[in-house]
Design a protein around this nucleic acid. Sequence first.
RNA 1: GGCGCGGUACCCAAGUGGUAAGGGAGAGGUCUGCAAAACCUUUAUACGUCGGUUCGAUUCCGACCCGCGCCUCCA
Length: 494
Amino acid sequence: MPLRLYNTMSAKVEEFRPLQDNEVRMYSCGPTVYDYGHIGNFRTFVAVDILRRFLRQSGYEVRHVENITDVDDKIIRNSAREGVSVKQYTAKYEKAFLEDSATLNIEQPVLVRATDHIQEMANFIAELEKKGFAYRAEDGSYYFRIAKFPAYGKLSKKDFAGMEDGARVDVDEYEKDNARDFALWKAPKPGEASWDSPIGRGRPGWHIECSVMSMLELGESFDLHAGGEDLIFPHHENEIAQSEALTGKPFAHFWFHARFLLVEGEKMSKSAGNFFTIRDLVLKGHKPSSIRLLLASVPYRNQLNFTFDGLKQAASNVDKLRNFQLRLTTSQFSPGSSPEMQQLANESAARMKAALEDDLNTAQAQAAIFEMVRKANVAIDAGQIKHDDARSLLDALEKFDEIFAVLKDDDTLKMQSILQWAKEQGRESDISADLKEIVGAQTISDDEVQKKIGEIEAARAARDFKRSDAIRAELNAAGIMVEITKDGVRWRRK
RNA sequence: GGCGCGGUACCCAAGUGGUAAGGGAGAGGUCUGCAAAACCUUUAUACGUCGGUUCGAUUCCGACCCGCGCCUCCA
């Protein structure tokens, strides 16, 4: 079965087929680097990450390009306020974005920056003007002439036919022919960052960068374009207008949009006090893996209610999966395999694949893996799992993790660096006791823990439970959970 | 106002024209020196409300209530 994806353009779920052979060329709208990214931003980025990971798992070569918007009104305003250059200002937040993405195990796409492509944008606009799709205003700004592009509105399903020219023209925009015409190029204002170009001095409008950079990297027509649902209009609509006006060819074939999330049942906003960056959550003691799983577990087109209770639930889910993995890798199994367990592993992997092929139904994919975990645990308890079965089940689990990416326990390491960052930022008061406790575990090395485990085993062999428990308590205080099983003593970081 | 999405148990959350996945939490239990992990049992007489279509609807249609999104730069 091929992947079926919802295409905003057709407003239907369609079979996804790349334009060229086995290669998927996709472009996603990345961040405007004017502040730290919040969980809403990262819901979209995680959704795109899951898409690209699943495409790859499905056997496609994925060429994924993402833009970083490093010049816009907010950036110009904020950098001026701080008295630093646009470049200095954006560098800080771009770095933060990359770190946060890595924190959430988001694979890095090919990144392209707006300010690296100013000349190409100017050329693009000059071409549009030649073809009559763009015009220059008196102040040197350029606008796109929507009246020349009848298909305008096809993505957002808006009908502009009845729009009266200049009906409600903003006083600041008196130079436009039509109020709906959007800026391609903005004439410089005193004190604002601007660039020299063949079409004069100024800076690019917001939409032009994506048209230019996507075509530069992926060609005039490519497979898929992604972003948050808010970008459908005007951003993506405008990209289509510019791009297709220039080339006369279809721009992106699939339009993928992730839905906004709610926080504690309400729209996230700074004024509501429910606005969180990734770093805010980590400082409160939440693990990156919990955050990622929560963001990933609700299908991307559904409204996700992000709650602290949900975060705890996600943490339990991650633990369950990691415990299962630990159990399979540390227990002793007799050689051979059993048909029942082979079938369980195969069926679970197949169910997971089918769920993801169904417009990336991550909730069902998760259900499939949890069902496998429960059934396999039952079999382990009953001693019905053989060596090769364990291998097959682990393979299925790894297939799951190729998409969800939550098994590897490097949470404490990531949290430690965010704690360090908070100290540098003078945000000590935001560092929770929970975070300190979790990060504390990292100060004990695996070797040291292993040594202590040896001591516990020795004490237990001598049935000296008092001594054994004392060492366990000591490790526990350092964030190490010791577990006694019939196959020996094992441990994990809390 | 226009266009669109959703309302499922204590919580999160799938899903289907034929009577409700999965996870968390709670309660009880099995196992265990203890703990943890794991497992078992249990928690929706009907899936926002009211009508309609149908042999039958949570699933289709209509109305209403509530939440959310877009309608020029917010992922």
